[in-house]
Amino acid sequence: MSVLETRECTIRFGGVQAATDVSIKVGEWEIVGIIGPNGAGKTTTFNMITGFYKPNSGTVRFNGVDITELSVHERTALGLGRTFQNVGLVKGSTVRENLKTAQHLHAEYGVVAGMLGFPRTFRTEKWLTDRAEAVLEIMGLGDIADTRVAGLPYGVLKRVEVATVLATDPDVLLLDEPSSGMGPEEAHRLGDTLLELRKEFGIAIAMIEHHVPLVVRVCDYVYCLNFGEMLAEGKPEEVRNHPEVVRAYLGEEADNPIVQAAEAAIEELVETD
């Protein structure tokens, strides 16, 4: 049984059909890649999964349960975590505060109790702080724990975002272009981290990616979207070499031998890193 699934999700905005019959499955312990040119509907699909958009037709299922009608925060409570293209953090707060905010659902006291200062709330807050500290240690972010997020460099922000989303204790992680802005070395290390997450925490992952070597290395299964439709799906190597996929990325020139040679050369360069 798949842990996360979209069944024929379709959504229209005004006159634009942003996604048509998109069906994606993420199985337990799986890392699934979602690729496609810009504007293919990848983030739209994520938005439907997390609940920012409600599809015009189709359903989203989490562990077999239909969550299409649930609100965003209710889906997070079920175990769905998500990162954003332009880094989803509370930029005005410190790293530590972000981590504590992310544990919102684990703070087991009422809002009013918190405001009035019942003793139990102090204890729970201490516990949350300790948990945050633990995540900071694991992610190597200890020395910037009390720095405001807004001032941090982009690469660090991405790590903080991953730490934050992990603090929500997800069973499934949706990553929106996690390697953007990273060089080949960093992307490789990101791949290590993702494999670790799967191994240590049993987290299933769905990621939107443009970085082909990362996808090939890490993903068990890949979906390619174009113009809101499923273009191809399968094992990473199959999808990558699928003529439709190549054409989608490179346009009509895909059959041009010069372009093919260039593409092969680039692939080789990237892989040797």
Binding site: S71, H73, T76, R82, S93, L105, Y109, M115, L116, T121
Partner: peptide
Amino acid sequence: VDWRLMKTKGGRALLALRENPRVAATLGID
């Protein structure tokens, strides 16, 4: 009460939703 509010989940929720309601929702905040 204001101090305790801001030191607990309620206050953090407010600051998050003020700045970025989408992200706040993703972090589990109603």
